[in-house]
Design a protein around this nucleic acid. Structure first.
Lengths: 113, 113
DNA sequence: ACGTGTGCTACTGTTTATGTAGCAACCAAT
DNA sequence: ATTGGTTGCTACATAAACAGTAGCACACGT
């Protein structure tokens, strides 16, 4: 796992932002955080929310996210964002609006290819 | 390539935010945009800025980002963010501060493993 | 004892990324 | 006009990451 204070895959700067980009740049990482934004989900619910991602990779990401103190597992509740991770997701929220404008800007070029 | 209005890898919702998370969830995608935030870079400079990422994957990502209208290639200038992508990077900027707090919150636990 | 739901792993195959080398086009100076 | 540098980019072989299916061990209630 790549964490701050440790060398980061690719660039060995160890700068926090690089560690973050590295962590979030892994498949399903951001999506998992996104799907947990409105409350905890048990493993299979989270799996379904992520479009039935394979349990292999889901569990791998969850391990990483728990190591990074972004996600916790609570007995009977499921997986939950830590307060810090909840802030992170809030920061990501504006991307929603941007993505809509992005779609509009791309226009109908991809509507009927 | 995955673009809005088209099914997204994993989840077939086609929602813009999912397309975005999918695109940015690929290795080096966010990092490339990040490194271009302060002006255009030619291929090899960009490669170096990304910690000497392999040209194979760099070129693959650049193709995708250009298709997604986030990056353009200008003769003699190199690769440049589109205005829309520049806005995106601005949205990502707060992650820098968050990442610092994240590092602090993780504490010295990973300093000397 | 049975069914249900939990988190999670084993296994196999495919996809994606890495690392090295090098090409063709351009341009400037010798 | 040929050398040397830079550009964007590709081929190839190897390694790592991911995907998809099946199923285990544990806990719970009935």
């Amino acid at each position: 796992m790549t964490l701050p204070h440790r060398p980061v895959r690719g660039s060995q700067t160890g700068r926090p932002i690089m560690a973050l980009l590295d962590l979030l740049g892994r498949r399903w990482a951001m999506r998992i955080l996104w799907e947990l934004r409105q409350g905890p989900l048990v493993f299979r619910s989270l799996q379904e929310a992520c479009g039935n991602v394979s349990p292999t990779i889901l569990n791998t990401r969850l391990k990483e996210l728990r190591q990074a103190a972004l996600v916790t597992l609570e007995q009977g509740k499921g997986y939950r964002l830590t307060p810090l991770a909840a802030e992170l997701v809030e920061l990501v929220h504006p991307l929603n609006d941007w993505a809509q404008r992005w779609t509009d800007a791309l226009g109908g070029d991809y509507e009927n290819p």
